[in-house]
Write a protein that binds this DNA or RNA. Structure first.
Lengths: 194, 194, 194, 194
DNA sequence: CTCTAATCGAGACGGTACGTCGCGTCTTACG
DNA sequence: CGTAAGACGCGACGTACCGTCTCGATTAGAG
């Protein structure tokens, strides 16, 4: 899942203790920065400085600034996705939606950073990628709504709704929000054809 | 609407012929570039070269690359918005949605560039800004769905749906698409409270 | 002498009243600026703004910023040179030197600007040019000291000494200074060969 | 003396091999350019191109084009000054002056560039700075000639005379030139008060 | 006293160099 | 001998100024 597993494996080397420390430090350094400013405004130097890591070291772990964000996004999305999936397997979408909202609310500091800091695009992209993988085999392809558009709509609506929620000064509580999410992002794709 | 009307008026000077030529050239130079690559990859030098305009001249007109895009977006959005507005004033949303889709389809080359080239975010932002202005005075604030979220949802869903459409290899025809847009982006906000 | 006489004559037109006003305004605008900062730091826009003259108008009179300075220098040098020349025609160099110093002291505000503001190089160059013209026909070419070097030395020493004088916080009076100038800049070239 | 010693010492880091190579390359690239054109006409890009060094790297080392010239001047002046100083410590100024001229003649290619390329002003300034430091403690302050003016005169006359020499098509030989320098630049300041 | 043409102010423009910034590579010193 | 520190090449940015240009508004001189 994470870059960590892939890269050093290719170079034929297990992740040493020092390496994983660096790895973790970089991921953890990114989050507080995302709360301060947009991802594009963050420089690699800032990340490495805050992580207490050499500048060049960054590029030994990740080819890019984007790769780090992608790595961060992938981790968190995986968690969220396991909350989202049951929505489509149960008749009662309400319960699932509520679980999803509760989870996001619980980690709202993290998700606020991810959804409101310029990381949103990357995160949504990762979400989409994974959601499409699951959806392709599980959904009806003859419906009035093409599968890929359905997924794209759900994800977009979900991300938008949640980011509105987390940005809001006086956010509605989890239950109310789950109702809204259900009506806006989930129900529309389940409407009958006519 | 455009920078042309606003800026020189403020400085108390009419836009000369030369100025508006430059102005138009910059706007028109951006479009073909947006079809080739993402907005962030486009350099100011490319824009000015293609516009047949001096590099420094760009910054006399716009403080930023972003400002040019914003200007371009503002123009086109205004046109689209006049198509979108009637949706909310008529009982028959279908007809309005169809008109909207027809319009986009007619200018699909332009809109493809705007919606799929990295300009999408700016364009959506401008759309939102204008839509919020109109919505605040016209919509019911006591509904189950807060006005700003409703607008944000509609705009997002609309942009996402349309960009899917224009990206698609074998796009559905206008009528079908209008139906989808109606169900996904318009109807959900009009659902009764319970 | 001045650009004024030359340029418009070439275009076959007398200098109109308006033109000479502009001309004078530019020259007079340069001086206070030279007191504030080095000539290279002064922009054409500053000069024209202070002269109350259009930017482009500057280039209708002078091809260059340098040409204006050259013009200013030429005027003032001509005056100074008529004071300097007698030095070499009389046995008593002291009296002439004293007259020279007195003249400079009288216009010290002007000369301070010319000699300490970055205009010094141009002014010296102009001085040299004119001095060489006079010297070539009047001096002995068989002396131990080549004529052009002699002139160059005199001018340089004179300019340097005077500029030291005018920069100085507690400048010596005219009489003392004339003595110094005489010893440093004048006498050395009149030393016998052995 | 050079930037090399000062800057990195301040940041607590020795100058690496790469750094000093860059440093030397820049200094050596400037010289041939100074022979071709005036310093002001030389662009930083030309310097870096000829030095085989990245454009931005220049500014990592020097804040300015001027700073590089200053650095170059400081190095060479130090050498020359050690030749010039003995003049004032010996009764026989002739011998010292001759040594000075011989030294300059030996490195005439370098000095021609420094004295005739627009670098002269900077070089003279550096010369003055160092000469004043030495002079203040060694010369008689009660003389008819203020110390600072004496130094300024000597340096100016020396620079002017030497630059005339090196520019000259058929330059006098070292011995003759030393005589001239002695009479023009050195003896005048040693004249008795009356 | 009016009409016409030169000249002016204003300032946009193409161009060139500047100095800054950030990325991703590459070297070097140190543990 | 491998890892952290950071210098470097690259290239885009936005700024400043130059000298040219276009364009009304002004004004001077001929009729």
């Amino acid at each position: 899942m994470t870059q960590t597993d892939a890269k050093p494996a290719a170079s034929g080397r297990r992740e040493s203790r020092k390496m994983s420390r660096t790895h973790a430090a970089l991921l953890e350094a990114l989050l507080p920065l995302l709360e301060e400013k947009a991802f594009e405004q963050i420089t690699v130097r800032e990340i490495t400085a805050r992580a207490g890591v050499g500048y060049a070291t960054f590029f030994r772990r990740y080819p890019d600034k984007e790769a780090l964000l992608h790595d961060l996004a992938a981790q968190e999305i995986q968690n969220l996705l396991t909350m989202t999936l049951p929505i489509f397997h149960t008749a009662d979408t309400t319960a699932s939606t509520e679980a999803l909202c509760a989870y996001v609310w619980k980690h709202r500091k993290l998700w606020r950073a991810l959804l409101t800091g310029g990381a949103a695009a990357t995160l949504k992209e990762e979400y989409l990628r994974l959601a499409l993988l699951v959806a392709e085999e599980q959904m009806d392809t003859d419906a009035w709504l093409p599968v890929d558009l359905a997924v794209r709509f759900c994800v977009t609506a979900l991300v938008e709704t949640l980011s509105w929620w987390l940005k809001h000064d006086a956010p509605p509580d989890v239950h109310v929000m789950a109702g809204i999410v259900n009506r806006l992002a989930v129900q529309p794709v389940f409407l009958p054809a006519d």
